[in-house]
Design a protein around this nucleic acid. Sequence first.
DNA 1: CTTTATGCAAATATTTTGCAGGCGC
DNA 2: GCGCCTGCAAAATATTTGCATAAAG
Lengths: 169, 169
Amino acid sequence: MHDRRHSAEPDIESLMGQFHAYLSKKQLKSTRQRDLIAQKFFAAHGHISIEELLNLSRAENPRIGYATVYRTLKLLAECGLAAQRRFGDGQTMYETAGDTEHHDHLICIECQHVLEFQNDDIEHEQERVARSFGFSLVRHRLELYGLCPRARGIKGGWCPNEEQRKLSD
Amino acid sequence: MHDRRHSAEPDIESLMGQFHAYLSKKQLKSTRQRDLIAQKFFAAHGHISIEELLNLSRAENPRIGYATVYRTLKLLAECGLAAQRRFGDGQTMYETAGDTEHHDHLICIECQHVLEFQNDDIEHEQERVARSFGFSLVRHRLELYGLCPRARGIKGGWCPNEEQRKLSD
DNA sequence: CTTTATGCAAATATTTTGCAGGCGC
DNA sequence: GCGCCTGCAAAATATTTGCATAAAG
């Protein structure tokens, strides 16, 4: 298991590649709008709402409409690169999924930042569980929510928030 | 519509108690409709949509309206007994929360249905991972996406979709 | 060229709200 | 009784769809 911090850019290239592969497999077209929306979506990496995505996209191409964002997100969901999610009363959010290197997330509920990790024992066990129900496992999502050392009040405790700031500057 | 059964009656009494406690703390009233909806909701235990809940409730009291279901679910969410959730492209679902038992989800990407499971090895490993980063673990979410036997094309394969129909009395 | 996408607006679906009686307390 | 609740319908949101035109392969 190893700790992998996010640097500014996640693996957008690879995700765009998967998206394009899906489009051509389905004989669908790759367009300026789809690419723009997908890029913005992948770049947001964590969570993003339809509206935020529309606004980000419009910043570069003001003529983009709601329908295109919905339609693109639907495609991304079909190929497992996006997943719809709803928290509390808020709006519908989408998040990235199906990353090739399936790292899981460790999230501090205090400072909101996200670390990634991989753990083979857990992965194996997931396989076993799926098989025990007769399922074949396609992908998974694992998120651990907790408090980072700083948030727990440990003096001089390490905090992913600051750690990331250091890394990205 | 069909409802989902769970072997042992979950702790509905206790959940209703928590709900009533919340109502009186907030000086809100306990009504026939609220109780009915909450009971149906708790009895469903796993996942239920607004519409299913409305139908179950109307089976006993046909005059119940959408608005009351929405309002009751909002109350349940406020006191932490329900949580909104959305899987795949499907409808908005609600699930019980704040229950002692925690369930992870196994979801068929073909038929969209959701099974719950628990696996102690995974839970332990999650603890270990969090600790190794200096985090204290508060909660987690684990979702496995895959194909059920039927969806995989296994002849006579078992499908959670149908299984549930069978189970419902 | 042929086929699929886009953007707009209109159609649907979903959720919330206002209000005139009803019902808990 | 007083004040919160309910059911209904209308309003506000959110999402999907139809269609003429534009762009991709």
